[in-house]
Write a protein that binds this DNA or RNA. Sequence first.
DNA 1: CCTACCGATCGGTAGG
DNA 2: CCTACCGATCGGTAGG
Lengths: 194, 194
Amino acid sequence: MEAVVNLSRKEQVIRKAAELFREKGYAASSMRDLAQKLGIEAASLYSHIKSKEEILHSLCFDMATEFRKSLVEVEKLNVTASERLRLGIIGHVEVMAKDLTASAVFMNEHRHLSQPYLRDFLLLRINYINRFKAIIELGIKNGEFKNTINTKLAVMTLFSSLNWMPQWYDPGSVIRPTELGQQLSDMLVNGLKK
Amino acid sequence: MEAVVNLSRKEQVIRKAAELFREKGYAASSMRDLAQKLGIEAASLYSHIKSKEEILHSLCFDMATEFRKSLVEVEKLNVTASERLRLGIIGHVEVMAKDLTASAVFMNEHRHLSQPYLRDFLLLRINYINRFKAIIELGIKNGEFKNTINTKLAVMTLFSSLNWMPQWYDPGSVIRPTELGQQLSDMLVNGLKK
DNA sequence: CCTACCGATCGGTAGG
DNA sequence: CCTACCGATCGGTAGG
């Protein structure tokens, strides 16, 4: 019972921290700022979390896990490369849309992780990107995509567009996340096709 | 003579600061870190600059001025919307490539500006983006671009791709900035065309 | 979850 | 460009 209550409070702390980190950046956010947002004293935070960095670690790695899970599901499907890419993009957008605040922190603040966490995080990220790159390369090999494509540039453009979304997407907007993913996919995947 | 020497030293301070801000972020960069990079004491920095924020202000507004200048030149030309967009993109990439370090700071650290500078900066940025948006809208109106385009999404995708460049572009790469701008333009503008 | 507190570090100034 | 220093704030701990 108490474990459940503590967990819930811990999640509340992490959620408020995500908002703060997104607004001011990790380094500029003090534990006193965070405590104030929660209506408690700074020292009391340490009943729930071990350190400031533990919060950042949770936020970054939990998001990374969600992205990975989404991509694994897409990779199981037996579809064309362009369809696979389309579904991968929609999945990525949907995961981000589920928590835009955490997504923004994931993208902008991960560099404040200390070693060895930073290295682990970057390895996860490069692996994720390379799996998207592999989809594009597959599409080129099987003739779906133009063989003139600069795959590195294509995948970087793709992730730039995807990762910047938390900065401008309005969750109350008329356009739903899945539809947004579809439109982004139209813009970014159709250009690759023959 | 002394004014020239001071100016040069000030620029040296700002350049080193840009590297530091890019690596660690503005908030996590201390004036002692910066002084160490320059081989002087922290207090000595204040012979050259007024404050830490003055450095950030210089970096952000100098870049903004360069971007604006590039776009103004393109707007003077009497060309089609797609050509105008293409040249705008190439210009943007070329400005960034001239100083990738300052570009990264411009993009990632401007939020640490205090008021009223932050507001001024954001106004400049929205004006710049809106002028690109106007080019796309012109292209739709005159029939060059599809009338099904979500202009907000198109312009956000464009700037996401452009602004993320400092994170992955290798200045020693075989691909030159102008050629990179051309390739980005091919990917992002061709998809808008009918 | 609080009070009381720690050592470290911060941006910046005085005066040379 | 330096030495010497300031008040403020930082993340975090002890002990309840």
